[in-house]
């Protein structure tokens, strides 16, 4: 099918979203004196059985929570950080019993692996990378990609973990001569990796050979785009971007997510869907997460908005609870749940 001009999703959507599409399943509070910075879901092996666990990160502590029978959560492991604060959790698919975290002040200075020693189940942390880390992403098949440094001094590295999270192998990818800001794996092509750069290019690598295959310049209307998801279909590359720096326009309102189609052979691209805030909603994107065909964003207004990229419109709005703005939103990788967090450590789990 030919792809026609950009559709604008979310305008006006007030009468089309379904508030019941998000149902509260459980909630818990992470008691910590520091600010809550991230939340994630992962599988953790306990006594030979894999359980879907929740990881919470505050600036000075990362905790692992296991589920109890009654939709309650119990804290089972805690790792403390006294020197450099935690910035984000870096989930690594296909690795059990290992959590990666990025630490730093404004920028990432360290990536650490958090694990438990098998003998006494005591918490350990191992420094994996240090330096001026610009981007990091966990990839399938137990791999972690990071870019360290800028411009010509940049190194793009893939680290592969053993199944138990232990020994590792490293490989370099050919760096582009521009700073990589975000990475995304390409569904449908297991050895392809995308990156977005500071000068609005999307770069494509071959993970197996380390080759830099293509640079695609995308529309300059949105600077510093973040790539959340990419998939290849029918010879085209579909890329979901968010635009944290986008300004509100009269025509479209506030664009939050954009679906872009790229022909990797010719480096030509075209926007096909723009997800904007529903009428009556103000603000910009603070942080977002995309899983399959659903995109969720925390807005500067403190509300969470969810878009269905196949329907092409906003399907749910989650206003602040107990007068407290939302600050975190993540899709669970273990089930179809949405994890929503507030700065004081409250975590709410919604079924989508």
């Amino acid at each position: 099918h030919s792809i026609e001009q950009t559709d604008v999703a979310g305008l006006p959507a007030q009468d089309t979203w379904n508030p019941s599409s998000l149902q509260l399943v459980s909630k818990f509070k992470n008691p910590s004196s520091s600010c809550s910075v991230d939340v994630s879901a992962m599988w953790w092996d306990r006594a030979g059985a894999q359980e879907p666990c929740i990881v919470t990160a505050c600036e000075d502590v990362v905790s692992l929570w296991k589920p109890l029978d009654t939709l309650q959560w119990e804290k089972v492991h805690t790792w403390h950080f006294t020197e450099v604060p935690v910035l984000q959790i870096v989930p690594v698919p296909d690795v059990y019993n290992l959590i990666c975290v990025a630490l730093g002040n404004l920028e990432i200075r360290e990536i650490r692996a958090l694990l438990c020693s098998s003998g006494d189940e005591s918490e350990k942390q191992v420094l994996l990378k240090s330096g001026n880390i610009k981007a990091v992403l966990g990839l399938t098949k137990r791999r972690l990609v990071s870019s360290i440094g800028t411009f010509c001094s940049q190194q793009v590295q893939i680290m592969t973990f053993a199944e138990d999270g232990g020994s590792k192998d490293e490989q370099l990818l050919m760096p582009p001569d521009e700073t990589v800001m975000t990475f995304a794996e390409v569904q449908g092509i297991q050895d392809a990796l995308l990156g977005t750069t500071t000068v609005n290019n999307i770069v494509i690598w071959n993970l197996k050979t380390g080759q830099l295959l293509k640079k695609v310049h995308i529309d300059d209307s949105y600077q510093a785009s973040v790539c959340h998801r990419a998939y290849s279909e029918m010879g085209l590359l579909f890329v979901v971007l968010s635009h944290p720096c986008a300004k509100e326009s009269q025509a479209f309102g506030s664009p939050v997510f954009q679906l872009l189609v790229i022909n990797p052979k010719t480096a030509q691209s075209v926007g096909v869907l723009l997800c904007c805030l529903p009428e009556g909603q103000a603000g910009r994107l603070l942080e977002g997460d995309v899983k399959d065909h659903v995109a969720a964003a925390v807005l500067t207004s403190g509300t969470i908005a969810v878009w269905d990229l196949t329907l092409g419109h906003c399907i749910a709005l989650l206003p602040p609870v107990s007068n407290q703005n939302w600050s975190l939103v993540k899709w669970s990788v273990t089930d179809s749940h949405l994890l929503a967090g507030q700065k004081d450590g409250n975590i709410f789990i919604y079924r989508y």
């Binding site: 071959n206 295959l213 293509k214 029918m234 010879g235 022909n263 052979k265 030509q268």
Partner: peptide
Amino acid sequence: CSTADLGPISLNWFEELSSEAPP
């Protein structure tokens, strides 16, 4: 704009670009 603006499409783009790119 439409896919016609994107130029010729190849289902094997990844393999083709890998064979053309410098090692």
